[in-house]
Design a protein around this nucleic acid. Structure first.
Lengths: 223, 223
DNA sequence: TATAATATAATAGTAATACTATTATATTTG
DNA sequence: CAAATATAATAGTATTACTATTATATTATA
């Protein structure tokens, strides 16, 4: 797993960046440190000026990689979903029983992220927190439709569609596979958020992932 | 019905505003026109300066009602959830069968909003669109915990808890009533959004509400 | 009816944001 | 070593998100 991942690069739509941040040291520092900074101060307060200061570089140099901070968020999110998709495909590939396959997929997608040493400059645990707290902001905009056409959300959509297909494989008569798949992905982020900030609105507590909740839900629905 | 029927006015936490917008003509215009404007240009592009221009008033006058546009969004959202809660309590009050009660609640909460002439200066249809597109932004902030303590989300939380209690009344052995209730409310907004912008990720199409999807889900889960 | 109180409008000003443009200086590559 | 390219430094702009002050309406009360 480790060795395989080391040779894998998460393929991200080239239109998201001006210059591939994986192609230089500065680019990697931008990605690495932006994750730490967005987690620390939140996406609203995060600016390229502050990031430049933090990485000992200049605002204008960061602009040569990303048009604006919104594009950077799209990049980080795409990376995260690509990374999750990889985990999902890798872990479910060898499972032949459709239900067990779906079970595994739900587990992968709903559990809290644990560190992955394969991508040294990316902290997946913090990135997962960022996705929980900020991902909605990347698509709840007036530009969604344009950006969707540009392909900025392909990886996320592919992930949902993979889960949807797994749902279908378990029960081809179930009428809402796509809605269920999107509910699992989005709902999982939401339950994680509730756990941390609105504990009365969820039954997932402390170190408890929403995994059990969704496993039970899907099992009952499809069996 | 209880305290709800006592006044037709939606009771909103007084800390959300500096001066009650219901108390003056200017205040009502601020609320009325901000709904039109946020729907039109989106919350990011919306500013008090633009709103002042639109309502023939001054930026500084708007600041005497709301500290900032975030508080205005909290106000609009609270109003919407209060209004929905009213519909929910009113429509389910007379239903004695727990399952039918829950069914009705899901219907109220997941269907597209239709106009309500009772509140002349508030366009509930547009407000519903705003909630779908912008509500997450009101809590996905670094200030959630503080603002939650201040009670800025009480109405929303009460709504979730009402649905959660209805779930419990149908099946007291179901282990995740709160998670299910929050999934219904948040998930419904999400499915509406997907329907409009990512149709491949949902099975709710065109004028189709996510009502059927959630009714089927809840029925299967609890029966 | 005059006066006081309050609400609103107009104006000005500030620090920060979200950039763009230009030039200088490194660093890499051919 | 020269040329190409990447990065850094500096400066500048329009807009945002406010605050403060003053002027002018409108309303309430004595």
């Amino acid at each position: 797993m480790e060795r395989l991942l080391q040779s894998v690069k998460i393929g991200i739509n080239e239109k998201i960046y001006l210059k591939d941040p994986e192609s230089s040291d500065l680019g990697k520092r931008i990605v690495e440190q932006s994750i730490l900074m967005i987690d620390e101060i939140g996406f609203e307060s995060f600016t390229f000026k502050k990031l430049g200061l933090k990485i000992g570089s200049n605002e204008s140099s960061i602009y040569r990689y990303f048009e604006n901070k919104h594009k950077l968020l799209l990049y980080l999110a795409s990376w995260y979903w690509g990374w999750l998709e990889y985990q999902l495909v890798f872990s479910t590939n060898s499972i032949t029983d459709p239900f067990k396959k779906l079970e595994k997929a739900i587990e992968i997608v709903t559990k809290s992220t644990v560190e992955d040493s394969a991508f040294s400059h990316i902290n997946e645990v913090l990135l997962n927190k960022i996705v929980i707290n900020e991902y909605s902001k990347s698509y709840l905009t007036k530009e969604v439709d344009t950006e969707n056409k540009e392909g900025y959300f392909v990886i996320y959509k592919r992930l949902v569609s993979r889960i949807s297909e797994m749902v279908n494989a378990v029960n081809k008569d179930y009428a809402y596979p796509s809605s269920l798949a999107s509910t699992i992905l989005e709902g999982s982020l939401h339950q994680h958020f509730l756990k941390d900030h609105f504990s009365s609105l969820t039954d997932c507590h402390k170190n408890d992932d929403p995994t059990k909740y969704f496993l039970h839900l899907v099992t009952t629905l499809l069996k």
